[in-house]
Design a protein around this nucleic acid. Structure first.
Lengths: 380, 380
DNA sequence: ATTAGCACTCGAGGCAGTCGAGTGCCAATG
DNA sequence: CATTGGCACTCGACTGCCTCGAGTGCTAAT
């Protein structure tokens, strides 16, 4: 593809993204001050159409990008705007202000991204690979009920209410708790199974039936920590985009979004693929080719993935584009950030934003975990 | 208003709710096999219009109910369908299956209601009036961080991560925790203030600066338990209703819904009013008049409130109707259940549903709190 | 290789006419 | 005297027709 074709394709995509209307040769020349006549453009357009990059809604209309056209645009023609410093300061402030729990950080990330992009944002809570259980405490609430508090190695805390046999009293529970802790503390989550945990039973003198039930509940609580939490924001703003005029289309889309766990699962899959692509991508960059779906940017800057239309393997999303990136906090913690919008999306801008947010989130998180107990003094 | 007018008004509202189209005299006669001619109906309609119960979009169109028309319908003409027994069994099952935390119960209530009504459902987490603090435990996570676990009198558990001075070690923290518990246990939440809690400082030998900070954080954690959690479901189904064709209208509505805390606050207000109305309502029922906004049904059956159009004091909701009811679990716990839909709403059906769900929720909750530690044994 | 020019296409928008489901009103009626 | 049949009128929805403008592809000239 020669340079002129590239310029024209880029111009068409840019215009179409702005206006949502098929763009014609004449107006393209006018709007971009091109140094070719409209006839030339027409010829080029015809060729681009033959290559499958453009489509015409009907004979006498202008052209709009096909999925393949967007693909080419994203892979080769993208310009990524810089995020100004004052915005960085604001974002950092927004994410870190009055921060207490990791959950809030994730929620705010989703909120910020939705706000800035006007599309739908999805942020997955961190997954902990190679994480181990540091502490486990069980506390009596009342006869029959207790709370399990788990501390994982990167300082993450989970808790869950459980039911226990009402015969167990506070002292018994303490004892069982200590037994479990002795048995599991320091173990990797993956290594904790019903079998490992049941060995804790041997360390107590209490009747096995009682202990076993507590062990089982504790086990469930531990496994529960691996659930992915999904934070979605900006659901409604999408309605403002013209492609959502069609109610059926909108409904079909929202039917997918409702199934948050499915979206989350899909994002995790994309993460795997992204990792592969980074490797391939670096490879290709050396050979001066272009990476296919993931653009691994210079080291230390986060990579991202773009899925366009049919490429999204979630039925109901065929008309959308999905941009994701993986955030990593230290080695153990990783999660996903994503933006979903119409195919007619401001790719450059969104990719800048998502990479930017990724970076800020990591910084804030590191800060959060590092910062000790320095804290404003008590008032009143 | 004579009986015939009532029949006609009811027929018009029913038809309009079904079709969303102005209903004319002739088709009304046809559809309902009325024993009057269309001319008679026309005369009656003209009078109903004069009374402000009906409106015409233009001269030669049929009539549709005005806000006041809906009001009259809801207050006097409603027929409340019975919920069949098998649905009751299913609902009970759905709400109580594998239930661990109270939160899940509320979430599921919202889900069930949205599913059944095809409108938007809002459920507020319980508020505890006259609640006291039963236990408070503080546990060290790592230097600088701890978790506060609070148990309130109806067996409700809250927790929150806090920051503490990193100089404090596990033993100190225990000591402070016990001091707080001694000082606060059994106290009503309303009676706990920064002053009461700070008296706990005197019970320890630790440096006041350190203790004060923990006390402050614990205080925040306690106050935090009074936050209202809002569970909303069915946001998207509303899009399927024809009144949401207009994107601007939809956007305006969603702008309100996004502000969940505002909606929650408004529902709490409605609760107050409902209580008043029940009293007045009972009064009026004795005098054989009709209650205005809240229809206090026979004792033990829950009351509900209906707000129609302009009556909703949330700007952006003028085109909607809002039905709420208060659930009460025992004396101390109460919360709100609501359904929001277009004014053209199946009032009878929704009111039946919402009252029904209220009843089931209460039953399940009582069950949940009563049930001891009887639980399936450990497997594996 | 580029471009000016021309014939052709197609959707959007404006206009007139028809149709159907309404209405209000009046005079006839049991 | 409440009810009803009949009639004239209204208005939105639909249809067909026309024009306009922004496109296109193709060809011949530069």
């Amino acid at each position: 593809m020669d340079d002129r074709k590239k310029i024209i394709l880029k111009a068409i995509v840019d215009d179409y993204v702005r206006t949502c209307e098929p763009v014609g040769s004449k107006s393209l020349v006018r709007r971009h001050n091109l140094s070719y006549s409209s006839a030339t453009i027409r010829n080029e357009m015809a060729e681009l159409e033959e290559m499958g990059l453009l489509i015409k809604p009907h004979t006498s209309a202008g052209r709009m990008p096909s999925d393949k056209g967007y693909r080419a645009y994203v892979d080769n023609l993208l310009s990524l705007p810089e995020i100004p410093l004052e915005e960085e300061i604001a974002a950092r402030q927004f994410l870190s202000e009055n921060l207490r729990e990791a959950r809030e950080m994730i929620e705010r990330t989703a909120e910020y991204l939705a706000e800035k992009t006007n599309y739908l944002s999805v942020v997955l809570s961190p997954q902990y690979s190679d994480t181990s259980l540091e502490q486990i405490k069980i506390m009596m609430i009342e006869p029959g009920r207790a709370i399990v508090v788990l501390v994982l190695s990167p300082g993450v805390v989970h808790d869950r209410l459980i039911r226990i046999p009402s015969l167990i009293d506070e002292k018994d529970l303490q004892e069982i708790g200590h037994a479990i802790e002795r048995c599991l503390a320091g173990k990797r989550l993956d290594d904790i199974t019903l079998v490992t945990i049941s060995s804790a039973a041997e360390a107590t003198d209490l009747p096995e039936v009682l202990v076993n039930q507590v062990l089982y509940e504790a086990y469930i609580a531990i496994k529960q920590t691996e659930r992915i939490d999904v934070y979605i924001d900006g659901k409604y703003q999408l309605l403002k985009h013209p492609e959502f005029r069609d109610v059926n289309r909108a409904s079909r889309f929202y039917d997918v979004v409702r199934q948050e766990q499915m979206v989350a699962g899909y994002m995790r899959e994309m993460e795997q693929e992204e990792e592969q692509n980074i490797v391939e991508g670096l490879d290709k960059i050396e050979k001066m080719e272009s990476a296919p779906k993931a653009l691994a940017t210079q080291k230390d800057r986060p990579a991202y993935m773009v899925r366009i239309g049919q490429e999204i393997a979630l039925s109901g999303m065929e008309d959308m584009s999905f941009i994701t990136t993986t955030y990593r906090i230290g080695r153990q913690i990783s999660g996903q950030i994503g933006v979903i919008g119409p195919k007619r999306m401001e790719y450059g801008n969104i990719i800048s934003q998502i990479s930017f947010v990724n970076r800020v989130l990591c910084d804030v998180a590191k800060d959060h975990y590092a910062r000790g107990g320095d804290h404003p003094a008590i008032e009143g």
